[in-house]
Computed example of a mutant assay.
Amino acid sequence: MDPLTGRIVLGPNRYGKAENRVVRIYRDTVRHEIRDLNVTSSLRGDFEAAHTAGDQRAVLPTDSQKQTIFAYAATHSGGSVEDYGLALARHFVDDIGPVSSARIEIEDFPWERVGDHPYTWTRTGPEVRTAAITVTGAGDTRREWVVAGLKDLVVLKSTGSGFAGFLEDPFTVLEPTDDRVLATSLVARWRYADTAAAWDRTYAGVREVMLDRFAALQSKALQQTLFEMGRAVLEAFPYLAEIRLQAPNKHHFLFDLDRFGIPNRGEVFHADDRPYGLMHVTVQREDAPDAGSAWDEYTGAA
């Protein structure tokens, strides 16, 4: 193999403060509200000297980013998590000179009020709302992308699903079926065509559409279910450019009770958590605006 002789240079890079656990209590009235967030910042810009010469003059410390995240929780978190993320990203790009692009990733952990008590909640879950906001450039070159979503939405249907007619090879032992339990822990992320949207109403609507389609569809495969869920979302929300879904197949195998002389009429299953099939599906519009940096690799929070 011939040796490579090209000059060694710095490649793409970014840095930020990961997983800031921000809890905001709203005390404007005697009936308090709570927001529980996990926030990650990630900045790109002219940071070459920091890497190649150890020169930190252009580097905003990650501790400063943490302080900003908490300060903005007090001053800019009255709306949706997308509004909060946009405010943070715009600040880093507009007010911190060396920064050319900022990405804010947010996990929003839900809490449920105990009865009608004004200041007590229980943590619900495991479903988590997510958002990833990217702002880059200034003036005529300014671009902004919002990717909202959810993760760990566990759903199961006890019938209405099959899997048959699949390709077989010498190692295939799976039996086809037209009636099986279909369960998954859904991750869904949808990209907005612009940043003028009703974030909270859209989140609730997308979630409802996906669950309705999952329940109603006579599924021939998990892949088909995911595509139909994505298509239903884009049909219902014309200002969404695309949706990406990830779903493990949480297998439920009929447990053998014959050895005990007990009939099993599709009622008792063994839930097997691994290994599992894992599906990734993107459903998009042919005329959707450029995704730009919207789908940059997630840094860990969302």
Score class of each variant (00 low, 15 high):
Leu234Met: 12
Val93Gly: 01
Asp63Tyr: 07
Ala87His: 11
Leu240Gly: 01
Val209Gly: 01
Gln284Tyr: 14
Asp28Ile: 09
Gly292Gln: 09
Arg143Pro: 00
His91Tyr: 15
Glu175Cys: 06
Phe171Arg: 02
Gly160Lys: 05
Ala148Ser: 15
Asp108Gly: 06
Asp258Lys: 12
Ala236Trp: 03
Gln65Val: 10
Asn38Glu: 12
Val81Asn: 08
Arg123Gly: 01
Gln218Ala: 13
Phe70Met: 12
His91Asp: 11
Thr172His: 06
Pro289His: 07
Asp140Ile: 08
Leu234Lys: 01
Ile104Ala: 04
Val187Ser: 12
His280Met: 09
Asp287Lys: 07
Gln56Gly: 06
Leu217Thr: 00
Arg123Pro: 00
Phe166Tyr: 13
Asp108Pro: 04
Phe253Arg: 12
Pro176Met: 03
Asp273Thr: 08
Ser80Lys: 03
Asp296Arg: 13
Met210Phe: 08
Tyr72Asn: 07
Tyr298His: 09
Ser158Val: 04
Thr159Leu: 03
Gly97Lys: 13
Ala215Glu: 14
Ala71His: 12
Ser101Ile: 07
Val59Asp: 04
Pro238Arg: 12
Ile243Thr: 06
Thr52Arg: 14
Trp145Leu: 08
Leu234Gln: 04
Leu153Asp: 01
Pro176Leu: 14
Leu278Ile: 02
Ser42Met: 12
Ala288Phe: 06
Ile8Trp: 11
Trp145His: 10
Asp179Phe: 03
Ala132Gln: 08
Met210Arg: 08
Val283Arg: 04
Gly165Glu: 01
Glu208Cys: 02
Phe214Asn: 00
Thr299His: 12
Gly79Ala: 03
Leu37His: 01
Thr68Gly: 02
Val135Arg: 05
Glu105Asp: 14
Gly292His: 00
Leu257Pro: 06
Pro248Ser: 02
Asp95Ile: 02
Ser158Cys: 11
Asp273Glu: 12
Ile96Pro: 04
His280Pro: 05
Asn249Leu: 07
Val39His: 00
Arg180Tyr: 04
Arg189Ala: 07
Gly230Ala: 02
Ala216Met: 11
Arg259Trp: 06
Pro176Ala: 14
